[in-house]
Design a binder for these strands. Sequence first.
DNA 1: CTTGATGCAAATGGTTTGCATGTTT
DNA 2: AAACATGCAAACCATTTGCATCAAG
Lengths: 153, 153
Amino acid sequence: MPAPAVSLDELLDQLRQHGERVTVARRAVLEELLDAPGSHLAADALADRIHDRHPDIHLSTVYRTVEFLTHAGILTEVHVGHGPNSYHFAADSHHHAVCDTCGAEVEVPSDLFEPVTDRLRRDYGFAADPSHLTITGRCAACAAAAEPAAASS
Amino acid sequence: MPAPAVSLDELLDQLRQHGERVTVARRAVLEELLDAPGSHLAADALADRIHDRHPDIHLSTVYRTVEFLTHAGILTEVHVGHGPNSYHFAADSHHHAVCDTCGAEVEVPSDLFEPVTDRLRRDYGFAADPSHLTITGRCAACAAAAEPAAASS
DNA sequence: CTTGATGCAAATGGTTTGCATGTTT
DNA sequence: AAACATGCAAACCATTTGCATCAAG
């Protein structure tokens, strides 16, 4: 289980050192993300959690904050096939495989795409950034349920 | 250059054989996709092209049509990082690497993700379907422009 | 005090949907 | 004629933005 690679204080210091302001919203976003299961949340879900303690923090602020933190290199924005984007710490590099059928998420190591990025660089000079990627498909359970016939003999 | 793997008539027959109706919109969508550069278009662009000959075909119909054709197994829906989804023939399997900076698209062979899908299956039992994936990053030109310093020595 | 972040509401872009009508079979 | 696809307008969702206000430095 990948523990958060950094602490809240470290992150806030990192901001201050770059001359960026530490605001309630920024602290709140980082806090919630730090103790989110899997450390990744969509803006919507993030706002919901933040509202428990800071009912005044607006969803648009959450959007602006994750955008800011992403540009600051602290967060990574992940594009999930359909569904909203989600955010996790850039330091905690990993990918997700999301089941189209049941929505289950499998966390996969960050080097999964190495063969892909290597080949893209070698063959096309393309510097791929797979950090935004989410793989879709069928999880083990759903795959088994979907093709019971194919499992025989 | 990957020529269309199937002809319009074959596709229409395929529909008829499954008891599905052949309509003006379906024919139009298939026609435009067949002669689109790279054989992939977003719903919006698809509608624009269709409007040249069929100004009456509504954008929502295009959406319903590509959805239908996707479920019918004829098209594949591709999720591009930001930007709208695009559609291409399922038979013409390939992926795209899209440059974050200039928007250039590199077409890459369909087996690119094989190491990824293999590993997901082996390690997680996850039946990945990479056909919807688009890789983002920097194309050769933009990567070179972005890091001139790193190229020295 | 100055710059920059936030709340709110309203706009945006992509996509979906309800319903009456038109088309395919 | 029956079933289904379509046009249109309106709804929807995720996200962005303008602007006046507020807070961090």
